[in-house]
């Protein structure tokens, strides 16, 4: 980026496309987009200002913003020529060794993803230390929200539990105390969802890998702007169907974004609640 005179951060998706077209060629692309997983669309559709379900759990993933996000992902590969398809396998459809090796070989030079996604750079691509920076999501796609959610851990205590109070204490200490969430951040770079922890010094340290950037500070500033997550009883099945019936055919240039996202409504409606 520096060599090509591209100024970081990139404020809009137009800037991203321009930078991508400047630096991409037959052997090197800006992004490695996924065709077996729903994460890329999940993040961009949130940034565009929409979700898969509304507050009452009804599927709304076929709206214009969601279609725009899916279409943009498709176009980055097939029209704008700034992205390739990520080398993934069925057993790991997000970042298997092949995917990591492609970044190490500099076949891709940028990515958008959650904090836990970045952790592979530190472990698998150590020689690019100091060359990466973190920024908020660019604007220009739908509502252009600067951040999005991808992942998260859900915990529940079943009615069969022998000691509900003890089980809740464990959940509380791990998730609702600064000490618990910071320990998790240190163990697996998962950025806390517990807001009081954002000011903890452990999250404010400059990161050598990211050129001394205080990435925790960036996350802390953006965390308050995370879009609301609407849950659904069929979330797991629905997102699997989304990957299967929308992302794969669209990202393999076989079907179009609008019709697949629209027909997904019937599939989700037929799922058992």
């Amino acid at each position: 980026m520096d060599g090509a005179g591209i100024k970081m951060p990139l404020d809009t998706w137009d800037d991203v496309v321009a930078a991508g077209q400047e630096l991409s060629n037959a052997d090197r692309k800006m992004f490695a987009l996924h065709d077996l997983a729903f994460g890329d669309h999940y993040m961009l559709s949130q940034s565009a200002g929409t979700a898969y379900f509304d507050g009452s759990g009804k599927y709304i993933g076929d709206n214009d913003k969601s279609v725009e996000a899916m279409q943009f992902l498709h176009d980055m590969v097939y029209k704008l020529d700034i992205a390739g398809i990520a080398s993934v396998v069925a057993s790991d459809n997000w970042y298997p060794p092949q995917y990591r090796a492609a970044f190490k070989a500099e076949k891709f030079f940028s990515l958008f993803g959650p904090p836990w996604h970045l952790s592979f750079l530190l472990t698998d691509v150590p020689d690019q230390s100091g060359k990466w920076t973190v920024q908020k999501l660019p604007s220009g796609l739908g509502d252009g929200l600067p951040t999005a959610n991808f992942g998260g851990t859900g915990q529940c205590i079943t009615t069969q539990s022998g000691d509900v109070d003890a089980a809740y204490d464990l959940v509380r200490i791990a998730n609702l105390t600064t000490e618990g969430v910071v320990a998790d951040f240190k163990a697996r770079t998962a950025y806390p969802a517990y807001k009081p922890a954002y000011e903890d010094p452990a999250l404010q340290q400059p990161q050598e890998y990211f050129g001394g950037q205080k990435i925790g500070q960036i996350y802390s500033e953006l965390a308050g702007q995370l879009p609301t997550f609407n849950q659904s009883p069929v979330w797991g099945q629905a997102t699997e169907a989304l990957a299967r019936d929308v992302v794969t055919p669209v990202m393999q240039d076989k079907e179009d974004a609008r019709s697949t996202l629209t027909s997904l409504a019937d599939t989700i409606a037929s799922m058992k609640q």
Binding site: D35, L36, V89, A90, S91, N93, G236, Q237, R244, D245, T248, P249, Q252, K272
Partner: peptide, 27 residues
Amino acid sequence: LLTNGGPSDSTLTLAIYLYEVGFREFD
């Protein structure tokens, strides 16, 4: 192991579907 029944169910077999329904959807 190779395709997990994908892409887009093109290698989904009865036994994989049984596993999905029984042990992932708990139906």
